[in-house]
Simulated scan of single mutants.
Amino acid sequence: MEFKEKITALLEEFLSQRTDLFLLDLKISAADDVTVVLDGDQGVTLQDCLDASRAVEFNMDREAHDFSLQVMSAGLSEPLTMPRQFKKNIGRDLKVLLQDDKEIEGELQAVSDEGIALLLRYRKPKEVGKGKVDVEETLEIRYSEIKKATVVVKF
């Protein structure tokens, strides 16, 4: 079995036992530096990263193939790339960059297999008279329209 296939198989076996976790990225450099990025429905703990690391490292023969292994969770500033990541962030504010480079910020209301629904809140001028009115509207966005989506961090 090839090195990358062996790593992938070990991760899949680990993740089949931990259905709350999922693989976001697996990178193997030319120097055999392995980087695994995990996410989870309730987040990823340090123990989760250690468990995944052990599942791979303890089942590989370092004498046969020398490598380095780094297992990490997706950072808060990392873009959302999978529908499962969007689902766990329902109720949070997202900043979404569309394919046409238009940027939208709103509260994530719903997630489907096709896309997301954002609740937009803004003020617009009154139709008659002076002043502005508060407006709330729901905007549905297909995944294919999203170039990048990140969670807005508020302090």
Rank of each mutant, 00 (worst) to 15 (best):
Q109V: 07
D33T: 09
Y122D: 08
K88S: 09
T19C: 13
I141P: 06
Q17A: 14
P125Y: 07
A117W: 04
L69E: 00
V152K: 15
M72F: 00
K126H: 08
V36S: 01
T45E: 03
Q99A: 10
I104L: 14
R121S: 12
G40R: 00
K88W: 01
E5H: 12
G75A: 04
I141W: 11
E145N: 13
K124L: 08
V36K: 02
F67W: 04
E127N: 13
D66Q: 11
I90T: 09
A9R: 15
D61Q: 05
T8Y: 09
L139H: 08
F14V: 08
L94F: 04
L69H: 03
D51C: 05
D66K: 05
V153T: 15
P125W: 06
F14G: 00
H65F: 11
L50D: 13
N59Q: 07
M82N: 03
L24Q: 04
R18F: 10
V36W: 02
A74S: 11
K102Q: 14
T150P: 12
G131T: 10
E13K: 15
A117Y: 06
E127I: 12
D32M: 11
V153C: 14
P83Q: 06
T8I: 09
L97D: 02
A31N: 14
I146F: 03
Q47C: 05
K130M: 13
E103G: 06
G115D: 04
K87D: 02
F67N: 01
V36I: 13
E140K: 11
D66E: 08
K6C: 06
F58A: 08
P83S: 05
F14H: 15
K148V: 04
N89H: 15
F3W: 07
Q70S: 13
L94W: 02
V96E: 02
K124Q: 12
L97G: 00
S53E: 04
F3E: 09
A30Y: 11
Q99Y: 07
G75H: 03
E136Q: 13
A31Q: 14
V44I: 06
T8W: 07
F86R: 02
K87W: 01
L139K: 13
V152G: 13
L21H: 09
T81W: 00
E145T: 10
D134S: 10
P125F: 07
V96L: 03
T8V: 09
F155N: 05
L118D: 01
I146T: 01
A110H: 15
Q42K: 15
M60S: 05
F22S: 07
V151R: 11
K130I: 08
L38S: 03
K87F: 00
Q99P: 01
G115S: 07
L38K: 03
R54N: 09
G131P: 08
I116P: 01
G106C: 05
A31Y: 12
V56W: 01
K126I: 04
D61G: 05
L119W: 07
N89T: 03
M1Q: 12
F67Y: 15
A117V: 13
V135H: 09
R18T: 08
K130L: 13
D32K: 15
K87I: 00
S77A: 11
A30V: 12
K4I: 10
D100A: 06
V37H: 03
